[in-house]
Design a protein around this nucleic acid. Sequence first.
DNA 1: CCAACGGATGTTTACGTAAACATGGACTAG
DNA 2: CTAGTCCATGTTTACGTAAACATCCGTTGG
Lengths: 327, 327
Amino acid sequence: MADVARRAGVSSQTVSRVANGYPGVVESTRRDVLDAMRDLGYRPNSAARALRSGQFRTIGVILFTLSTTGNVRTLDAIATSAAAEGYAITVIPVEAPTQDGVNGAFTRMGELAVDAVILLLEVHLLDAASVSLPTDVPVVVADSDAGDRYPVVDTDQAAGSRAAVQHLLDLGHETVVHLAGPSESFASQRREAAWRRALVDDGRPVPEVHRGDWSAASGYDAGRRIARTDATAVFAANDQMALGLLRALAEAGRRVPEDVSVIGFDDLPDAVAYLPPLTTVHQDFAEVGRRCVAGVLRQMAEHSTEHGTTLVPTRLVERSSTAAPRH
Amino acid sequence: MADVARRAGVSSQTVSRVANGYPGVVESTRRDVLDAMRDLGYRPNSAARALRSGQFRTIGVILFTLSTTGNVRTLDAIATSAAAEGYAITVIPVEAPTQDGVNGAFTRMGELAVDAVILLLEVHLLDAASVSLPTDVPVVVADSDAGDRYPVVDTDQAAGSRAAVQHLLDLGHETVVHLAGPSESFASQRREAAWRRALVDDGRPVPEVHRGDWSAASGYDAGRRIARTDATAVFAANDQMALGLLRALAEAGRRVPEDVSVIGFDDLPDAVAYLPPLTTVHQDFAEVGRRCVAGVLRQMAEHSTEHGTTLVPTRLVERSSTAAPRH
DNA sequence: CCAACGGATGTTTACGTAAACATGGACTAG
DNA sequence: CTAGTCCATGTTTACGTAAACATCCGTTGG
């Protein structure tokens, strides 16, 4: 910066003013400075800038894995809307869903150049962590629960699940079998509870829960068991497990949707190409990401801590995997 | 830091020494400092640290989209191996694959707190960019070509594609139809060229290329056209398009693998649950990520610029979507 | 014609850290 | 017994920036 100032024949403060677009610099001076910057290949030093301003213009995202579609799509949306606000995203992976893993991530984050944090984690992991989040950093929790300690942005799991079950009941099915996600997952718990409640509220029998781990392979395994039952309608807790389920049903000679109706959750881009195209509950990941970013930004601006949960609505997408039962 | 020093009754330099684990601090002093740190909740200021040391311990990843599986899995691997080396990852999304978009990302990166950059971009975009990468920052290009300007880490697209084609020819198919990716994509170009060459080398006829955009939906569209031909074997440039292709063939009443053999590329986790389970070429994304990180780290350590391409081998995974043709 | 004013630019300083150098005391070797 | 040595710790300084304050000059209004 000093070099630029010398070359342009001004003070370094004027260079700073030009670099930050402050008013009160006369046009000819501004051009001189800009020229000098270009000639010298000047790039502002972000460390010094952050040291002065106390801001990194970076948001940290702590997540456990990039191998679930939900996390990835939420991260994508977060990155996009953060970029729109001039913020970058630092990804802080938690190596293992153990106490050590989470502690490690938090420790690293403490030393990291971030102004705020978005947690894409099951928060019960957070409870187990002995290191707590620094209190002076804005936090938003996505897709999980936070027991009122932090603001939460989540898809409306309950409404989406209820819509899925209701859709099948409306078609005339006696009841709906549930292919649930892992019992540790908060999203999975929510979807299962809503499914159960929808059946109970309508006076339907509640069949035994089948359980997978979100993967298509686990959906296939569960599907082989389901194919042996007389189920006519299945609500899978995500599209990937629904994919495995479809394969298992096809192999068992049960046609979809003629013999069995299947509905998923997520609306993956691929779901339209499943066999048959999957009826599913659309999640608006982009909106979740936007609201997460808006949330931490608001906290930064207002220097406040907020609470409460923001629910992003879902939408039922009817394709070809559901139909009325045959009698 | 000054507060900690005061409380521990030492100088701030001694605090710094303890914080950085330098030797030459007597055990009792060290403990006093550690206690004071804990009591005061001291956390080192990364901006000041970076300003002094000139290092952020952060690697920037510039990418266009998180919606392709390849990018996501590579990013995941990069993040994981960077974390193992004590580095964090900053994601710099390019909003649009236009000149403006790339320029914007580069400009932002210039101001960003990163020690090195990994490009997860088609590099022809880079050519179109008027802003060039700063020369003092180590760069590695993943999954693309870089015309010898930067070191490249890539999956061995050519060997993988050749193996896929050869597998089908070995089964007795007369020739192999190719469902290619978008023509702008470097990976797509490589796979298509290798397919063509494998056929030519073996003296087989080279059928017309069908083209999609990597998505399952585009694979379905192309698949409807392919289903009308007398093709007996199709090599899809990725698994997602293969998924769409499978649906199109099923709808057209062409059985897989009895009537048509299908092979993919990527080995997505879901591919095992396709109908039928997909034979495909496995990509080792984790290894690509590891080598990218190792590459930039090496450049930082040696203060060198390297060139050349590192190819990560693929592996053919035989499942149930390929078989000998019926005569 | 002069004082007050406001706009453009310069000067000083502090942000938190760690390298470089300085100090002082204890121990060792001759 | 003394000079030299080494180790633990303290003091000074610089990293690059931007806020706060200072200065200078032209303009305007009474």
